[in-house]
């Protein structure tokens, strides 16, 4: 945990793979290829990937794809998934309409 990723590491070029069109984030419709490319574009943390591609930022808030994205990024970086810091957790944990989020009890 909290492993600092060595940014000077050479992860090589992006090499297309036959299953790059596999959909990973079901809500935002992001593919495996897009995630792999993002890593080669320099997005090495899960938080960066999330902001760059919106994986896990759709309606379900990463319920299904977090683990899948983590695996893909880890493999691309040549590290174990356990070494990657998960994306930040913050409120609201579940999708909440803005009008509800703004309406706090008195």
């Amino acid at each position: 945990m909290n492993t600092v990723i060595d940014r000077s590491k050479d992860i090589g070029e992006f090499i297309p793979q036959p299953d790059d069109d596999m959909l990973i984030c079901r809500c935002e419709e992001i593919t495996k290829g897009e995630i792999r490319k993002a890593v080669h574009d320099g997005m090495w943390t899960l938080t960066e990937i999330r902001r760059y591609l919106r994986t896990g930022m759709g309606l379900c808030q990463g319920q299904t794809c977090s683990r899948l994205v983590k695996g893909i990024v880890a493999r691309e970086l040549g590290v174990s998934p356990a070494e990657l810091e998960p994306a930040t957790s913050r409120s609201p944990m579940r999708p909440v309409e803005m009008k509800v989020f703004g309406k706090e009890e008195a």
């Binding site: 609201p92 944990m93 909440v96 309409e97 509800v100 989020f101 309406k103 706090e104 009890e105």
Partner: peptide, 18 residues
């Protein structure tokens, strides 16, 4: 929807955050 270290809990009940 939220939990903080001082043990404050935010809960969505109906159309309000408590």
């Amino acid at each position: 929807v939220g939990l903080y270290s001082d043990k404050e809990v935010n809960v969505k009940i109906g159309d309000q955050i408590h």
